[in-house]
């Protein structure tokens, strides 16, 4: 078992134990697990939160409604021109209100690592701890003008502090804060989600936080636009604007086009074409992303 998988398993055990303690609340007599409509828990972002692949939605992970506790886990593989990206995540959704998530990210730098003096196939690793709270609204039900609205935070711990300093990053740890609004407009079968994020993360934190150009929080917009073709199948695109704080490595906004298919109530497969732009001095990083997500 690779180190990052082992760590994910440990965190899963801790989260599982936390959940085991939760039913001792006022909801205990009404607890009921599962029951969400297919696909309405989204997929898992590369940061572990439920949503699209690149940006969170105002959804709560797992298949449970406000009467239960759900779990969602994912494995993501992205192969762009010069890098390989992997992430594994697990998230707990509590009463369709609170989401606690963890993701482990790994970026294999292949030949770029050698060119940067790190050694070929040097791997950058990062832990992402997430918390999201749905404030009000509903993605499917209620007035069409009232989206689900959530706020969240993602604390990221880069495990390669020496590399972060070498590229000009100011910190190996950082916290993003975001707010998301998400609605499925049934009259047009269109899902729209918008997220505003305060961040100083370079390449999602894999190159640290803050840099020689700036160490301030920037406000960035992200979003998903998707069309629901059937109960189980949706296609769409995503956009995520990003900071640009490192003098040596320009950073570009991210885009993707995706197709997500619910194989059944518990498994969703997503295939995407992603354009990550320039990553750690190497431009035109485009490629394929695949995710398998399980929700309960």
């Amino acid at each position: 078992m690779p180190a990052f998988m082992r760590r994910t398993t440990q965190i899963a055990t801790i989260l599982g134990a936390t959940v085991a303690l939760l039913p001792a609340s006022a909801h205990a007599q009404d607890m009921r697990h599962g029951g969400k409509l297919v696909l309405t828990n989204g997929i898992s972002t590369i940061e572990g939160a439920s949503g699209g692949g690149l940006t969170p939605w105002a959804t709560i992970a797992g298949n449970s409604t406000k009467d239960g506790i759900g779990v969602q886990a994912s494995a993501t593989v992205a192969e762009v021109e010069d890098y390989d990206f992997r992430s594994a995540s697990i998230a707990i959704g509590i009463f369709d209100r609170v989401e606690v998530s963890y993701a482990r990210q790994m970026l294999d730098t292949n030949w770029v690592g050698g060119a940067l003096g790190l050694g070929n196939d040097y791997k950058l690793d990062q832990d992402v701890f997430g918390l999201k709270v749905k404030l009000f609204g509903d993605m499917v039900y209620g007035p069409s003008a009232l989206p689900a609205v959530a706020i969240g935070a993602q604390h990221k711990k880069n495990l390669d502090g020496a590399v972060v300093r070498a590229v000009g990053g100011r910190h190996a740890e950082g916290t993003d804060f975001y707010a998301s609004a998400t609605k499925l407009f049934l009259s047009h079968s269109v899902l729209a989600s918008v997220t505003g994020r305060l961040t100083k993360a370079n390449q999602n934190g894999l190159l640290g936080f803050g840099g020689d150009k700036s160490d301030a929080y920037d406000f960035h917009l992200e979003g998903t636009l998707a069309y629901q073709i059937s109960r189980k199948f949706a296609v769409g695109g995503e956009y995520r604007s990003k900071p640009d704080k490192l003098g040596i490595a320009r950073e570009d906004d991210w885009y993707d086009l995706f197709a997500a298919y619910a194989l059944n109530r518990n498994l969703t497969a997503t295939l995407a074409y992603a354009d990550l732009g320039s990553v750690a001095t190497v431009p035109e990083q485009r490629g394929v992303l695949f995710q398998l997500q399980a929700g309960f």
């Binding site: 009404d30 009921r32 599962g34 029951g35 969400k36 409509l37 409604t65 406000k66 009467d67 239960g68 369709d96 039900y141 109960r231």
Partner: peptide, 11 residues
């Protein structure tokens, strides 16, 4: 009727 029941009815 709970939320999960409503979703079942929709299905």
């Amino acid at each position: 009727v709970q939320q999960a029941d409503m979703n079942r009815i929709v299905e």
